[in-house]
Design a binder for these strands. Structure first.
Lengths: 153, 153
DNA sequence: CCACCACCCTAGAACAGTTCCAAAGATGGA
DNA sequence: TCCATCTTTGGAACTGTTCTAGGGTGGTGG
């Protein structure tokens, strides 16, 4: 739940071929690897994976029917604080992205919610990264600590 | 609730001095202007205004105590579909931004939630627009319509 | 090999934010 | 003024997430 520096092991777009490095990393960090956690972690493996908790739950359940929704939430939150997943919000619900190694942005379909990773150099999103999308909007949120909060800390 | 093209009347950063143009625009579009709606619209006037529904409710209530939360939600949603407010989500709840005239991004304090409008030329956010914030993260979401959805429409 | 203890899992309750609903009230045109 | 229409209201319902209390489990020391 703490300490080990978040060394980015992956190096950019690695493709979805490797199934275990996340599991290995977690074990190396002393994370108790139960059946539930393994199934959830495996569900979160791949490229362009941006599942919401209930989707993770459904998929995990097909492999391990007795897994509970609470465990899915617990595990996802833990993986986020371990730095192994990145969390973002789309249409009011949290989604989880296993691609934490390379800085990237999201390309979201307003109709079906389909989400792809993109790597633009500038916020304009070059044509070769649009995946055929008709662009409608860009939302950029910078996060930081304001002067008051910095002073208070 | 529909039609009238969303002519951007304001022109960039206008300052918070004008109190009525939003109200005027709404009346011109045939929007029935009740006391509740007026109070809510006035609450949403100004610069760097990014209130959540319950905050709008609290403020509106100090002026018009009998206003209901349902009306606040109804009105905010309507103003969004009229194109007079922009909606975004921060930490699981929707916030509303009256600044729809000029393209801008948001600078959010991860500690207190304070949100400011910024106008970067590139996603790096130049120093003179950081408002003293210590930058921690940038989140960029492109929205559009994917090829499948375009074909289906 | 066993016992123990810290950690983990589970179901369900609780919670927050938002939307829905039916009834009552307000509004403006004929 | 009357009436059809639109608006408001409180509360119920709903969704996504977190909390809680109790039972279960893995793996370490003996």
């Amino acid at each position: 739940m703490e300490s080990t520096p978040l060394v980015a092991v992956g190096c950019g777009r690695t493709g979805g071929l490797t199934l275990t490095p996340l599991i290995d990393r977690l074990r190396d960090r002393g994370w108790r690897l139960t059946a539930q956690r393994r199934v959830i972690a495996e569900t979160m493996t791949g490229e362009h994976v941006h599942l919401a908790a209930d989707e993770v739950f459904e998929r995990a359940r097909t492999v391990l029917p007795e897994v509970s929704l609470a465990t899915v939430y617990n595990t996802l939150n833990e993986l986020v604080s371990l730095g192994e997943l990145r969390e973002f919000t789309h249409e009011g619900r949290k989604r989880y992205d296993p691609n934490v190694a390379d800085r990237h942005h999201h390309l979201v379909c307003v109709a079906c919610g389909r989400t792809l990773d993109v790597h633009p150099d500038d916020p304009g999103l070059p044509a070769d990264q649009r995946h055929g999308f008709e662009l409608l909007d860009v939302e950029v949120t910078f996060r930081g600590r304001c002067p008051d909060c910095t002073a208070a800390a």
